[in-house]
Simulated scan of single mutants.
Amino acid sequence: MRALAEDGWEVRAASRGGGRDEHWPEDVRTVRLDREDDAALASVIGDGCDVVVDMAAFGRTHARQLTGLAGRIGSAVVISSGAVYEDDRGRGFDTQNEPDGGPRYPVPISETQRTVAPGETTYSTRKVLLERELLAAGDAPPVTLLRAGAIHGPYCRTPRELYFVKRLLDGRRRRVLAYGGRSRFHPVHVANLAELIRLAAARPGSRVLNAGDPQAPTVAEIGAEIDKVLDRETETVLIDGAPEDGVGDTPWSLEHPVIYDMAAAERELGYRPVTDYAESLPGTVAWLTERLRGRDWADAFPKMVRNYGRDGLFDYAAEDAWLARHDRTAG
Rank of each mutant, 00 (worst) to 15 (best):
N307K: 12
G149H: 02
G71W: 14
A321V: 05
G248H: 05
L135N: 06
K166F: 14
G149S: 10
L66G: 00
L288Y: 08
Y85A: 00
W24R: 03
G102R: 10
R35S: 13
L254D: 05
L230M: 12
R175G: 03
R157N: 10
A117V: 07
D276N: 08
D34E: 14
V285H: 01
L199S: 02
R16H: 15
G181N: 08
D276Y: 15
A298H: 05
R198I: 14
G8Y: 04
V116N: 02
T61Y: 09
T144C: 06
G101I: 13
D170F: 15
V237L: 09
G92I: 04
Q113E: 08
P214W: 11
L162F: 07
W252N: 05
V305E: 11
R16C: 04
E195H: 02
T121E: 12
T115L: 00
T67Q: 03
G59I: 12
N192R: 03
R310E: 06
T30I: 11
R291S: 11
L69Y: 12
S80R: 04
E319G: 15
F58C: 01
R29T: 14
A178T: 11
I45K: 00
W252S: 01
E244W: 04
D34W: 15
R2K: 10
M262R: 01
D320R: 15
A39S: 15
R182F: 06
T158P: 12
Y163M: 08
D88H: 14
L33N: 12
E10D: 13
L269Q: 03
A263D: 01
G48K: 13
H256V: 04
G180W: 12
P141K: 04
D213S: 09
V237A: 01
L41R: 13
R310V: 15
D311R: 13
T234P: 14
P273D: 02
G241C: 04
A137R: 06
I259R: 05
S124C: 06
G153C: 03
A324R: 15
L313S: 06
L199M: 02
C156H: 06
H186P: 14
D54E: 14
S43Y: 11
V107D: 14
T61P: 00
M1W: 00
G283W: 04
R12F: 02
